[in-house]
Design a protein around this nucleic acid. Structure first.
Lengths: 131, 131
DNA sequence: AATGAACATGAGGATCATTCTCAATAAGCC
DNA sequence: GGCTTATTGAGAATGATCCTCATGTTCATT
């Protein structure tokens, strides 16, 4: 049975306030800064269990580091992340879902899942670059 | 200037024979098995430079390990990978490209790139599972 | 409120992929 | 052959993530 602990609440609360993807290490550091000491191992465990339950999204950065973010929807969805500031927008991708299923079937594959992420420069960061 | 070395040729030759994604570690091991001793660091360096030149595709597995595969096309494309045997099919995704560009623009993002991979169980592996 | 069984935590060690260091080696050019 | 410089490789360093296990907590039950 899952028990509520100070640590789990702290992680959940922090995630509720963040709007973009953060690594486990960053989350650990942010917790420390606000005075909620939580062991690094516990941060990893908590994030993993949240991810298993579909309450946070996990993204793999190019360097292989995992990034986490609470997701407002339980259903499958995608993200548009700013490469500069990390701001993320959640997206629907009905067209993509269909395309994936169709292509998978065409090649005889079963249980086709997909991962897809968009990365770009958001309007705000693009403006700053100009200066 | 780029020099041609025994090691670089060995990696290139091996990649030419492989049809699916392999990790740097696996490639290093495969080279050893066939008698082409190449240092692990060199395997990593070689794969990285090939990736920079767009001659191999890089995929991040869920565990964060990078997987490499020569790509038959230089243009942007996607993959359908079997979760069981690793066999990969290269795909065109015109629909996806358009969708990504449209969605990015709708949110004011510039230079939107995307990553997308399909994972499923290929017909052959699905058959084996039944036994 | 006290109890106890089961779950959770954390400090530090263990893994494991990947990168770095730097002395030794080899490629390409004269 | 000899030289200059890119390349290699062995091993150390890094860094994220997981594991261990003794200790601390939660919570249903008294």
């Amino acid at each position: 049975m899952q028990r509520m602990t100070r640590q789990r609440s702290a992680v959940a609360e922090l995630l509720a306030e963040l709007v973009d993807f953060r690594s486990a290490q960053q989350i650990h550091e942010l917790l420390r800064e606000r005075g909620d000491e939580v062991g690094l191992a516990t941060v990893y465990r908590t994030l993993q269990s949240l991810a298993d339950r579909g309450e946070v999204d996990v993204l793999r950065a190019d360097d292989g580091e995992a990034r986490y973010r609470r997701c407002s929807r339980q259903e499958h969805h995608h993200h548009l992340v700013c490469r500069s500031c990390g701001t993320a927008v959640e997206l629907d991708g009905p067209g993509v879902e269909e395309w994936a299923a169709r292509v998978g079937a065409a090649h005889g594959f079963r249980d086709v899942a997909h991962t897809m992420e968009l990365v770009g420069t958001c309007a705000e960061c693009a403006r700053e670059e100009q200066d």
